[in-house]
Design a protein around this nucleic acid. Structure first.
Lengths: 427, 427
DNA sequence: ACAGTTTCCCGTAAATGC
DNA sequence: TGCATTTACGGGAAACTG
């Protein structure tokens, strides 16, 4: 019914947006014997900016010192949580010698925690820093920022410089495909299967055969546009993940969206299938679009493949995708409208695949809210006549594997879960 | 195509939202002979709070003094414009003795401008204040705030107390109907005609005959809910104005929306009309809804009146209203879908009335964005069988009059146009 | 508990900086 | 001038607060 602004920006740790509050937490892992006095922790942002390149620098606007307290949930160790922190940029009147083509989302920042105490008369300084953070000023920068966080954590074992992206290492396709699948599994409840990943690999690496040890550069992954398109590979796939999260979640989780499949493969798959067999594919030409393609076997043995103009989030918020599939009709002028979608590839009856996600609407329930006629929207294609394309060879689908979360093992000390919501850190 | 967040909150002067910048301007109407030195103006918010009741108080966060300058556009008089002003609430640790049931949108505030200069050795103080202002913290308070501004300016001749709404005067229906029409004329390009106003009058005053000198209380106008409804009269009509501004503007301006018409009158009008005659009516039960009702003359001489479930902004942003009228179909099960809308009351062929607002879409233009089928949405009602209602007696429509802007004459000195955008004031 | 009010913050648009 | 980045702020929802 209504779907204006769904919950966005879920757990994307290590990205902080200016003007938006964030939270951070430090835990003292070592138990200090005789600390009955107040242990004060100070939080500093960009305490030790990297030498050379002069990036943006931020500071914490709000109160940045607090006393540690015994943590209840855990086994009584000390911890402190800073809430409602906010960042503001330090303004330099001097030259902002921004050499190097680092974008703001490639800039790495850091939070430093400091504390002092006296042990047996000896003053001891504690200090620890967070994993590198990315600071953005608008959610439009979130995808790029998240790519940086992932690339860093994927490819760093030892603490790297804040200048990581001055010369970022390459990733192997093996590493990358795991991350890509993990993304979908983690944010949309279902990862990517071999076929989907292989399509993505070809898209990223070009026509060359895709091996696990193919190298992918940071630039190719996230900075360069896909040839002939006005967006990069990462932005493209992220727009799709977003579309899934907002409009396709249950259908995606059911595994009924093949999605990442080239037009060639699509045709090869549908070629020999019964008329009305269709599959769902993400648009490669526009951000965040999904279309369906069905096959019609003509009497002369030739197969026609027909795709509908991709649905974007605007369209899908007017009408849920499952309902579109249920109600879709083609009106070839004068002829009685008909729904050409019959079987989800390979041969699952449409209602069996999507039935449970149909919205009640029309033919069910509240038919008679007297005195009004109910109203619903029907997706149709009106057309005078159409031309088809052709085919190649088939290929079966496969179930996706489960992938484990990556980011956890990459930090020294205890894991730093940082986000606009929470940054958690242990000494 | 896309219609996510249209330009909202247009010129509603005298309402200031916290956290949002506003602008104010003062002009020195008197020409000072020998003022070649800097004439500094200071702006203060809530400088002299009313005694007694302890309301919220605000202050100007940003710089509040500025030097007057010769105005270019005007004939060289001095003026100064404060931009990027922002309000913050003064917090009192003491008791906020909020006696009296004044809501925040009934609280009146004021900006004071002060300047000093020396004329022939004599120090002279200038001071002037703005018209009363309403301070809100969220756009959701804008309609209520705007009602206050209008009520005040409608009913005040001499500078009234800031406590105006402690005991607000009544308005006559004559005054009120003029304001209501002015609203529509000013924000939606077309005012209200006699019939529309008379329906509104009945709604506001109950069944009693509506005369120009009927009295309407502030409470009835804006605070009490309409009997049986969870919203007040003002909120209801404002939701409709908003719907028009965002989704019905051209159709409204053309005068093809009767809109404010009771169900009884509606039926009386349609009773004797040809089958397929319809009119457009705003929902009285839900905020911001519009429906169409058409008549079907049965063979036995009985008229059926059928209304569609009201369209709200969510629906209308999926499909423009004119297209809904063009494409609307009823599918009474099994029967070939048909558009029951033929003539706009009294007898204007549908396409003649709405044709120029049809969206190109489907049957025109970009039919073949190969390789995709174009897609569009069709509004339909699916139903098994329906029951009609009945009728009373006819009543012709009438063209709306032009109404002049109210707010201009109400201030002493030069008009104070205040808004989140601009507050303009003369000494 | 609850209603009136404010704060939070995404997402689009506009403004700004370089 | 164009692109990168930030700011502005409407609108929905959550948080606050008496």
């Amino acid at each position: 019914e209504k779907q204006p602004c769904m919950p966005t920006h879920p757990q994307k740790p290590l990205i902080i947006k200016t003007q938006v509050q964030f939270t951070t937490k430090v835990r003292l892992l070592v138990k200090l014997p005789e600390v009955d006095y107040q242990l004060k922790v100070k939080t500093t942002f960009d305490r030790d900016p990297p030498p050379g390149k002069m990036n943006r620098q931020f500071f914490i606007l709000t109160q940045n010192t607090k006393v540690m307290d015994v943590e209840e949930s855990s086994n009584g160790c000390l911890s402190v949580e800073f809430r409602h922190l906010q960042l503001k940029e330090k303004k330099f009147n001097g030259t902002k010698g921004n050499e190097g083509p680092l974008t703001v989302t490639e800039e790495l920042h850091m939070i430093t925690f400091e504390a002092q105490f006296t042990l047996q008369g000896m003053p001891i300084d504690l200090m620890i820093c967070s994993l590198p953070l990315v600071v953005i000023s608008n959610v439009s920068q979130l995808p790029a920022g998240w790519a940086s966080v992932m690339w860093y954590n994927l490819l760093t074992d030892e603490p790297e410089s804040m200048l990581f992206f001055s010369n970022p290492p390459r990733a192997t396709w093996s590493q990358l495909s795991e991350v890509l699948s993990w993304q979908f599994s983690s944010f949309a409840g279902r990862g990517l299967n071999k076929e989907q990943l292989s399509m993505l690999g070809e898209k990223l690496l070009g026509q060359q055969p895709v091996h696990n040890d193919c190298q992918v550069s940071w630039s190719k992954f996230c900075k360069e546009n896909i040839p002939g398109k006005p967006f990069s590979f990462w932005i493209w796939q992220d727009s799709i993940l977003d579309l899934i999260k907002k409009h396709l979640l249950p259908v995606w989780i059911d595994g009924n969206i093949m999605g990442f499949v080239s037009k060639e493969t699509e045709r090869a798959l549908l070629r020999e299938r019964e008329s009305g067999t269709f599959l769902l594919r993400f648009s490669e030409s526009h951000l965040g679009g999904i279309t369906f393609t069905w096959v019609e076997q003509a009497d002369n043995g030739e197969a026609k493949f027909i795709s509908v103009e991709p649905y974007t989030k605007n369209r899908l918020s007017a009408l849920p995708f499952a309902d579109i599939i249920r109600d879709y009709k083609v009106i070839a002028d004068g002829i009685v409208p008909e729904n050409p979608l019959k079987f989800l590839y390979p041969d699952i009856p449409k209602d069996e695949a999507f039935g449970k996600h149909y919205n009640s609407q029309q033919s069910k329930g509240k038919i008679h809210i007297f005195p009004y006629f109910p109203m619903s929207l029907i997706p149709i294609s009106t057309l005078p006549n159409v031309t088809p394309l052709q085919c190649s060879s088939p290929d079966p689908p496969m179930s996706p594997g489960m992938f484990h979360v990556l980011s956890q093992q990459l930090s020294p000390f205890e894991m730093a879960a940082v986000s606009s919501q929470c940054l958690d850190r242990g000494f």
